[in-house]
Amino acid sequence: MFLVPDSVGRFFHRMASPPHFYAFSGRLMPWLGVIFLLLVGAGLYGGLVLAPPDYQQGDSYRIIYIHVPSAWMSLFIYVMMAAAGVIGLVWRIKLAEIVAISSAPVGAAFTFIALVTGSLWGKPMWGTWWVWDARLTSELILLFLYLGVMALYSAIDDKRVASKAVAILALVGVVNIPVIHYSVEWWNTLHQGPTVTKMDKPSIHISMLVPLLTMAVAFKFYYLIAMLQRARTELLQRERNSQWLKKLLESEG
């Protein structure tokens, strides 16, 4: 292992051990919560109070501060889920399998939020709740992929086998990710093009961009919190017969 420093390697090695992961994630939780709340507070204040109304869309555009970060998260979490799934598949690391399946409901939630808030924005701006436009349709497929992953996992009793199946499904679904990202450029339909993630300067004013990026970072922390909560629960259920769990419950009285 020349690529990663020794201390980083040791950290991941320890984290792959269930009791360490359980204890460490528990200690991390309040810190993650505080950072998340601070970021959300700052992002919402900047987005809902400080930022001016849009010159064409008025105040309706303020949905952007949850719609766009949620849509980014829906893609980000899918890639994380597929990557963790592959790590679990190749190296048989139980914790990676757990991170993969624990990411699915959080990703599904953000995908659902992106679709619903988009709909609530589309109604006053486009005059319709929904169109079968390329961006909306591919994002809906993403929601079905997440739900498919969750259904497949719960349908197989042996959770190690279930994790393998889920990793393969998640990997196949990765093909949808670039389709979603480039859909607004490949097919010129109702959904607007990118304003932030493009090569030249973002076409959004700094007073709107800063709260938007703050919310995006806040949602990353939310993902960590929600995913770790799921992972802790999943870990206990998988390790129900282990010695460390017995000891932990006894020491807590």
């Binding site: 309706s60 949905i63 949850i66 949620s70 939020i113 619903v116 808030t117 609530l120 924005w121 006053p124």
Partner: peptide
Amino acid sequence: YVWMAYGLT
């Protein structure tokens, strides 16, 4: 529209 979006989220 705005508060519905924020509330649901």
